[in-house]
Simulated scan of single mutants.
Amino acid sequence: MASVEPEARKERRDKKDKKDKKRKHSETVADADEVEVVAEKKKKKDKKRKSTDGADAEAVMVVDTDGVKDEDDDKKVVAKVEEDDKKVVAKIEDPLAALVPFANPLAGEKDGKKVMKSVKKAAKHKHITRGVKETVKAIRKSPMSTPATLGSDVLPHGIVIIAADISPMDVISHIPVLCEDHNIPYIFVPNRGELGSAGSTKRPTSVVMITEGLRGAKKDAVDKEGEKEFQETYKELHRTAMKLGQTIMV
């Protein structure tokens, strides 16, 4: 009986040892899996951080010329981003949908620059009338002229420049009809602010009229060379108006 008891005790101890070994093996495998998962997460995080750092370095390289990143480089990066944002906003703030539906002929970007230069020279040489009221009065007082054509040497008494971003449209809707009654060419431009600036005024302007020449005391006091230069500008503006008038926009 005494010899049997140690055998049973030994068997129980062996079973316990096997269970302990099995439990330790399971815990070791679980720990290994956990370590592997953590390592994989760390690897992904490091990869993402390197990618972000690379993008930042690329942004700095755009303006970094001395190879050293400093505060000026950061300011240049911020300035470049702000400039791009302003360009996007400027494009959004100038939609063609805001123009009056009867804006025809409408000067495009290239012709619009020519028109604005002509308005600036007209303002410099005092050949300009600003505002709806004054322009309508000048059109009605202008002598009736024969209709001019492209390439013709006959110049009209005046040329009217109208801003197409006016609201309500009734403010300028009668001007094109009035111009046609007096055979005066007219051109629409997209921005009234630019028209006012070109006409040497700080306020946005709905319409201006550029006249061919001066009369009376003003004509005697004008610079002849400057007047000759303006006449060339006026002829060029007339050709632009005639060219745009041949295109019908739908």
Rank of each mutant, 00 (worst) to 15 (best):
A221T: 06
E212T: 06
D170N: 08
K224H: 04
D181R: 10
M61C: 09
I184W: 10
T211E: 07
L195C: 04
R239H: 09
A107Y: 04
K45W: 08
A90F: 01
V250G: 03
M61D: 11
N191F: 08
A138K: 15
E83Y: 12
H174M: 14
V89Q: 11
I162A: 02
R203I: 10
D220M: 14
K50I: 09
H127R: 15
Y186K: 10
A123R: 12
K45S: 07
K21H: 11
K43Y: 13
K15G: 01
K16D: 10
D17M: 13
T211R: 14
D70H: 06
E194V: 05
K126C: 01
M209N: 00
A8G: 04
A30F: 03
V77H: 07
A138I: 14
H174T: 14
K124P: 00
V100K: 00
D72L: 11
D181P: 00
A163T: 02
E225A: 10
K124D: 06
R23Y: 09
R49G: 02
V77K: 13
P6G: 05
T146C: 05
S152T: 11
P101L: 08
P101F: 08
K43G: 13
E194S: 12
V60I: 10
E7V: 15
I184K: 07
D170R: 07
S51D: 12
D153L: 11
S118A: 15
V136Q: 15
S167T: 14
K15L: 05
S197L: 08
G226Q: 03
L237Q: 02
A123Q: 13
N191K: 15
L99T: 01
L96A: 05
L214N: 05
S51H: 12
K121A: 12
F230R: 01
K126T: 04
R239A: 13
K202N: 09
A79R: 15
K80D: 11
K124S: 05
G131C: 01
G196K: 11
L214K: 13
K22R: 13
P176V: 08
K141G: 04
A8T: 10
L178S: 07
A163E: 01
S167F: 12
G151R: 04
K69H: 12
M169I: 04
